[in-house]
Amino acid sequence: MGEIIRLEHVSKKFGGLVAVDDFSGEIETGSIVGLIGPNGAGKTTLFNMMSCTYPPTSGKIFYKGVDVTKARTDTMAARGLARTFQVTKPFGDMTVVENFMVGAFLHTKDRATARKQAEEIYDYIGMSCGRDKPANETTTVDRKKLEIGRALATKPELLLLDEVMAGCNPQEKLELVETCRKIQKCGITLVVIEHDIKTIMTLCEKIVILHRGAKLTEGTPEQVANDPRAISAYLGEDYHAGC
């Protein structure tokens, strides 16, 4: 299988604050990996570096074997990396399908083709708000789906999902988990940041716990759940007992 993205000793400092501290790791092609940790652990910073929003202070990032440490964000989409944002960023003036069209335009210039692909995405992702609803009038869960759909429209190989389930009710979370599984079956590698431990334990094959910018532990959900460091730093004794 091989890895799709590899991080080597990546650090990010914002002035005196060390957001990510010497992080190394890789993500297997076709897998679904969970990234968890307390607030301010550096999860989103790690995402931002993987999607080349800003370069790391030190260390290197390889995407499909190519050094992309200093690549530009807009080139990463063409290479096959797409992401969603923790605070949803819909294109409010456009309709839902038009939002998807913006993503689809990455691979086509033709408006009709983009429209067709966008409508396919709309059906695929299972939205029910109406294709031509203005994006800024949609509900929280639809906005999350909009983010995923728009990223999918760029035909990615690696999809980074930043807290897509935050603010959703249990039923909606289940829907989103199903959507993630469906996306994985299409051969897209997924990295998921999430706070809901139960959801992420059932969804992911591998889990990485970040703590104060450094990797605390990684492994399968069971390994992580039984790791004493993870329990004391993040999961808590209650979760361990609950297992």
Binding site: T73, D74, A77, R83, F85, M94, V102, T154
Partner: peptide, 19 residues
């Protein structure tokens, strides 16, 4: 479409591969 996207949210537009 690209210009309207840039107007709405430049960060999101950039993440979709828009220069």
């Amino acid at each position: 479409f690209y210009l309207t996207a840039i107007k709405s949210d430049p960060d999101a537009a950039e993440s979709l591969g828009i220069k």
